[in-house]
Structure formats: structure tokens, C-alpha cells
Computed example of a mutant assay.
Amino acid sequence: MDEMKLDYIMEIAQQKSISKAAKNLFIAQPSLSRYVINLEKRLGVKLFDRSHTPLELTEAGHLMVQYIQQSEALKENFFHELEEHKKSACTEIKIGVVSWRIPVFLPKIVPEFIGKHNNVNVIIKEGVSQDLEALVIEDQIDACVVNGPQNNQSLEYRVLNYEKIVLAVPRNSEVAKNNYDFENDIYRPVDLRSLKNEAFILLVEKYRLGLLSRKIFKSRGIMPSHITYVSNMNTALSMSAVGLGLTFMPESGIERPFDGCESPLYFSIGEPEFGFPLIIAFKKGKKLNQHLMEFIDFVCSNYNEYRQS
């Protein structure tokens, strides 16, 4: 019995009428009646009790319906298991990472993970936090490592660490001279209210650090008169290192190497502190394949160790 004819039996059982079932199945009633009669002859049992209006299933009819339902459930389970098998056999995972974190992920975390899972390829895509989250939701990448906060209801998050925001200051600036004891290597928190006339280098507002920078100024009741806007954290730090202005950055960047020049000095911004969580995000409600789950667990367990090393 093919699937279509099993559908015939189910439709008759549901409608309790051959004529109504024929109409819903878009076939002639006599053809459907002949099919039922021939099937009952072949099986040697009656499936429907025609002495009742509406039709009723016989005991054999109930067994037939039960068999069809079980067959459908088995078929659905088979295709589900097949999809899970294909996912678990996946040898490629796509991970979005904000550019600032690439120096930790590419030379440290990704090679270590691949060394433990040599049948898995990890593809890294750089981008802005909001853009990477959108790609996860659109199933173009599997997960992303981005700056918080966790505010997208379509995603699930796991927190890797929490980072304070510090102020990067050129070494040869008056701000550095006034707040750093070079002889004793002592840093003093900077009062941002005294810096309203200083040049700042800020990320544009589509970056979460760009938005946070504006909140920091608002909390101190100032807005600097000289601001240069950039779209890359590394650019902002490089400009600060050569004396072009002050900039905010996550504290994890303090150990970032600088080519050809000394690094800026890094100061606490005092109270209240500002910061954000670093998170790994994946699509809510989506069944994750085994390799992706292993990658997420690996990053959560090892990120801070690799960052500090």
C-alpha cells in the first residue's frame, strides 16, 4: 500500500464518510468506494461499519489506523534522526568574532581546538557585534563572539568574561604626565571632567564601545569639543599611541603589542566604572551540532587562560 492510499483510509476515518473524504481528496466517490472494497477483500476483513451513519471503524479498521499512525511517526523519527546524523557529521563550523578578539582566537584558541578535533574546520568571520548577531539569526554563521550586553531575544548567550573600560593616553601627553608617576610606575585614576578640552578618538556609534563611550561622558557631565571618529578599535589605539588623542578600550587590550612605537598608557576612569561582558551567542531554539557545542564549551572553558597568556 503506497502512501497516497494510506491517506485514503485516514481521510475516511477522519470524515466518517466516503463522500466527504472523496471530496477532500479530489477523487470520484465511486473510485474511493471501489478502493475500500478491494482493500477489504484483499485483507479479508471489514475496515468500516457501513450500517452506521456516520461510518464507524471496525476493530480491524482501528488496527489499520493505528498502524498508519505508527508508520507516520516512525517515518518522521527517521528523518529527524537522519538530520541529526548529518549535523553531527558536519566538519565545518562558522564562527563570527569581533575584530578586537581575532589576536586571541586565530593564533591561540582555534589552532588548539582544531588540534583536538582534527576532522573539524573552523571558519572565522570578522565583523561588528550587531552584524554578527544578525548573521547567526539568519543561519549564515553558527555562533559569534561579541561584546554584550545580551539584548537580542532571538539568541542565547554564554558569558566568557567581563571587561572594564580603561582610558588609553599618549605617553608624551600632559594627561599622562599629570596622572602617572614615571619614576615609581604608579597610575592614578583620571578625572574625565578635566579632559573636556582634550582630543579624543572614538568608535562610531554602531559599535557597542562607541555607544558606551558616550554613556561615560554623559555620566561625567561632559562632551569633548575635539573628537575624531573611527570604525576600528586597532586604528583608535594606533592613533593614540602616536599622540593623536585619547581613547577608551577594553582592559584586555592592555597587552596588545605595538609595531614601531610605544604603547599608550592605560588609566582607570574612576567611579562609576563602565564595562561590558564578552559573550558567545548562538541561535535560540536551534539544535546545535556536536562540533559546535564542543567549540562553545571549549571557548567558555579556555578563553580567559588564552587571553592572559
Rank of each mutant, 00 (worst) to 15 (best):
Q29C: 05
P30H: 06
L25V: 12
R193V: 08
V110H: 00
F48K: 03
P257D: 06
M64K: 14
N302D: 07
E59S: 15
T53F: 06
N304V: 14
S240D: 03
P107T: 06
A60P: 10
G221A: 00
L25E: 09
L6E: 13
E126T: 15
V45Y: 02
H80W: 10
T228P: 01
T58W: 08
E11A: 09
F276R: 02
K286D: 09
R214T: 14
A236F: 05
L25I: 10
S219E: 13
Y8Q: 09
R220N: 08
Y207Q: 05
F78E: 13
Y303S: 01
V104S: 01
N118K: 14
P149Y: 00
S268V: 07
I9Q: 01
T228W: 00
N161D: 12
S238C: 10
E251P: 05
I280H: 02
Q153L: 09
Q29F: 04
F298V: 09
W100N: 07
S309C: 11
A176S: 14
L47F: 10
Q153G: 02
V65F: 05
H52Q: 14
I18L: 03
L212C: 02
P54R: 05
S129C: 09
L278V: 13
R188G: 00
Q70F: 11
Q70L: 13
S238F: 00
E156R: 03
N179C: 10
F267K: 03
R256C: 11
Y157H: 01
A236H: 04
Q29K: 13
A281C: 09
D49E: 14
E84S: 02
Q14C: 05
P54H: 05
S173N: 11
I109K: 00
V299F: 01
S231E: 11
K218H: 11
